[in-house]
Amino acid sequence: MRQVDIVVIGGGIAGLSAAMRLARRARTVVIEREGALGYHSSGRSATFSHFGIGDAAVRGMTAASRPFFETPPDGFVERPLSFAKPAMFIATEELIGELRALESEMTRYTDTITRVSPAEMLEIVPVLKTGVGGIVEGLLDRSGRKLDSDLLLQACAKAVRAAGGEVVTEAGAIGLRREGERWIVDTAGETYSTATIVDAAGAWADEVAIAAGVRPLGLQPMRRTIIGFDPPEGLDVSAWPFTKTAGDEGFYMLPDAGRLLASPMDVTPTEPTDAQPEDFDIALAAWRVEEATTLEVGRIKAKWAGLRTFTADKVPTAGFAPDAPGFFWLAGQGGYGLQTAPAMALATEALLFGEAWPEELAAYGVRPDQIMPDRLFA
């Protein structure tokens, strides 16, 4: 039986980014049941950071995370972790109210947002259908950033190991129990005795808690689908922004390695699983692109689905379980796990070690009570 201080269950971006900070201060092991890091969610994201999703807490954590992506710590990566790419939010006549509400929220965190007319939008994305029955108003946010999720995952894992921690794949938690003041975590290859468990198991976080005898949060995994297709021959889309419909229904689209990626922004409740795209959602993605643009989605060159797991209030959670000593929640990242990971890691370090709340989070109005799990049991 290995004696450690912290066992992080889950090798996605939440667990790895937190472990990177924790391993500097305590003997830390990250265990991941799959053979690859970030297999279910982090590795299936559109990897774009913007202020157009979430509530004030999420936007605040997005803002607090930006310096990390723009200027990573010395030696963390050998190439850029992100690059600037604008985000453009579009609305039909029926969605102008939602677009204006979005503008009001976003301008609290960035001064780079401007309204764009249909003519201006066509200069940016010339395939949009504008005018009567089409897109009539937009917002352009020049602070958007495209993230390199694989580089981020691997760099975090490297940093964990450099600090003396371990990252073990194909090591699912097959047994969890409390013995005295310690937790015992069984995996296929090793048994760990630890003071603290960090439950960063994504869509499986509630299942991990139940196995440990801890009250679950009521997390809900949601399936989201993305398709990839080629733009018309001769059309250079590389400078197009991340383009998203205002509101909860519609689509988003962004260029990626010469192709266009698109999602119907589906939010289909599902059980924790290896999510696969369904024919209806694939067709819906193509249809919504064709409804809003002059593009014809021909052969679909790529398609995948991933899980986004939400708490009841759709705010990520970090903090000790109120009913289980040494059991720390790091879950419910929803659709913003990558773009808030550095901020959530800061919060996790402070809450786990009982330290002062980070100034980086307080500066953007993010409070402990907004993310601690106690609120979900009130």
Rank of each mutant, 00 (worst) to 15 (best):
R59E: 06
I96H: 06
P241H: 06
T114M: 10
W329E: 07
P118W: 12
A195M: 00
A257L: 10
D148R: 15
V29P: 09
A286L: 03
H40V: 07
F89R: 09
I96C: 11
G10L: 09
S263F: 11
G250E: 08
V132E: 14
L176S: 07
L81W: 02
K158C: 07
T130Q: 02
I174M: 10
A56V: 08
I300S: 02
I197E: 10
L307M: 11
G213K: 04
M344A: 04
T107D: 03
Y336K: 01
A163S: 15
M121D: 07
F320N: 02
T348C: 14
F327W: 14
I197D: 02
E120T: 05
I282V: 15
S117I: 03
A157C: 07
G354V: 08
V30R: 07
G258D: 06
A286M: 07
L151N: 02
I113A: 04
D230N: 11
G298Y: 02
R161D: 00
A159R: 14
T294C: 02
P255L: 03
R115M: 02
G326E: 08
S149C: 10
F89K: 01
T110N: 07
I300K: 05
A239E: 13
T130P: 01
P126V: 05
A209S: 13
I210S: 11
I226L: 15
S263P: 09
T191C: 10
E120P: 02
E170A: 12
L376V: 08
D256Q: 12
A347R: 05
E103R: 14
P322M: 11
R223H: 00
D266M: 05
R182F: 13
E355H: 03
D141K: 09
G189I: 01
E105Q: 14
P264Y: 10
V136I: 14
Q3P: 00
R66S: 03
M344E: 01
K146T: 11
F280C: 00
L361S: 06
P118L: 09
V198P: 03
R79T: 14
T270C: 14
Y109H: 12
S104K: 13
L151M: 10
L260G: 05
A239V: 05
M20I: 00
A19Q: 10
R224H: 13
L122K: 13
D323Y: 10
R299N: 11
E32C: 03
F229S: 01
T130C: 13
G12Y: 10
P232T: 08
L152D: 01
G337E: 03
V214W: 05
S263E: 06
P73A: 12
K301T: 14
V30A: 06
F68T: 09
G38D: 05
P80M: 07
G11E: 08
G15Q: 08
G12E: 11
L151C: 06
Q276C: 01
V7N: 01
A157N: 06
F280V: 12
A324W: 06
D150S: 11
G326D: 09
E181K: 13
T130S: 05
L99T: 05
I90S: 06
L176A: 10
E120M: 08
G60C: 08
P241Q: 09
G131I: 04
R25H: 14
R182Y: 11
G202H: 06
Q333R: 01
E291T: 13
R21E: 13
E137I: 01
M88D: 05
